[in-house]
Every structure is written in structure tokens, then in C-alpha cells.
Nucleic acid binder design. Structure first.
Lengths: 115, 115
DNA sequence: ACCTATTTGTCCGTATGTATG
DNA sequence: CCATACATACGGACAAATAGG
């Protein structure tokens, strides 16, 4: 379930929107092959501008989660698992930033994990 | 608060132990400079062998979270923030594994995050 | 300088689980 | 289904470093 965006949050609005949609897919609210609501409607529900929503959706397309087709709308292509993973990745990077760690340090930590 | 280890969990015991202690530090239950309970006592509380606990603690030492001194015990050296980050890193890698993603793919995802 | 208690470091042997062929 | 190999976990024992009397 999508909830309204917090405009006082220092995190950019389109990032918040992207996070919510990632989570929604991860939670199974929209499965692979399904069509997403219109950007206009998403914008209305989330209380932000349609351009902000589009910016977020384009990010998710770059992550391999969505597919755009003119006149056809936006289709989910990624799996719940992938969406879940991407959500965790973004949360991790956000935590790192908050605490002054760089992505490179994060990557070192991951590489140090055995297996 | 540390709770008993789940021996039916497919995750290796020493990994579970390490996760719990990372979380405990992240939650502020043991701050920098403070001494950790004896490995023997941790083992008793967690319901595992002392060697298993030591193996977990050595991992945390390699991560820069702990410092060992024979006869003196184990001291916390890492910050809550770092421990929190490391905990998230390990959770992320675990999620990835569960879903068949490799660490290299995870790293690509992180590098693709803007900023 | 010595001795003792404490606590981590390390290794052994064994049992068990898991993956592979 | 069986055999093999490998990693994990346990229990126990002893070594090594530190602190204090």
C-alpha cells in the first residue's frame, strides 16, 4: 500500500517515491507482467507532481524493474525478489550516507563477507 | 538483548552469533571502550560452544568492531553506526544469497545508485 | 622476582549435516 | 541408495598473555 510522501524528509521526493514502489513490488502488490497505475494517478495518491513520479519510475526502469511502452503504460518486469533486494540496497546506501561512509567503503565491507 | 541461537536455522551458528552481537552493539547495548562478557558466558547464554562464539567474535574483530587481549577480555572498539552498517551489509548479502544473486551483482546495484 | 588466577588462542578427536557422484 | 568429501559444531585439553598479590 502506497502512502503519502513526507515533504519535510530531507530525502529527495523522487527517491522516496522510488522506495515506496520498490517495496510495493517486493511485497507482491504488483507482480511481473502486471501494469502499473498511470503516473498521473500515482502522483495524485502520493501527493506529488507527476514529473516527480516519472523521475522515480525511470530510475526503476534503469534498475530493471519496469518496462515502458508508449501508449501501453508501464509494466512490471522484475521479480519480487529483485525488488526486495534493490530496496535493501538503497536502504543500506542511505544508512551509509547518513553516517558518513562512502559507497566504496560499503563495497569493501561486502567483499569482506565470507562465502 | 541476546537470545538463544536457533540450531534448526540453516544459517551457520557462528554467523548467527556474529549477527546478534553486531545488532547488540548497533543498539547501544555495548558501547566503545566497554568490555564484552567472557566468551564462555556468551556461549552459555546463547546455548552454543565457546569455540563457536570465538569464531564469531574473530569475524567481528576482522571487521574492526572488537579488540582482543589475552587475560583481559574483549573490548568494543567500533561505533554503533559502524556496527549498524555492518549488520545491514550482512543482512543484504544474506537476502541476495537466498534469492540466487551473487555479491558481484550486489556491488553493481550499489554502484548504480546515484550520488 | 614469583606465583596464581583469569581469559583468550589453538589444536585435537568426534559427531553430524550437506553436497556430490 | 550408497559412498565420499567437506564444512560445521562440540567437548576437552593445554598453551600463552595479562594483571594482581
Amino acid at each position: 500500500m502506497l502512502s503519502e510522501i513526507d515533504k519535510s524528509d530531507p530525502i529527495a521526493l523522487h527517491e522516496q517515491v522510488a522506495s515506496q514502489i520498490r517495496r510495493a513490488i517486493a511485497d507482491g502488490e504488483a507482480g511481473p507482467g502486471e501494469r502499473l497505475p498511470l503516473a498521473r494517478d500515482l502522483a495524485a495518491v502520493l501527493g506529488v507532481n507527476r514529473n516527480t513520479v516519472l523521475r522515480a519510475l525511470h530510475m526503476l526502469r534503469d534498475e530493471g524493474l519496469l518496462e515502458f511502452r508508449r501508449g501501453q503504460g508501464i509494466k512490471v518486469t522484475g521479480t519480487r525478489q529483485k525488488s526486495d533486494l534493490l530496496a535493501q540496497v538503497h536502504e543500506l546506501v542511505a544508512t551509509a550516507r547518513r553516517n558518513g561512509y562512502r559507497k566504496s567503503e560499503l563495497i569493501e565491507m561486502i567483499e569482506a563477507v565470507k562465502g
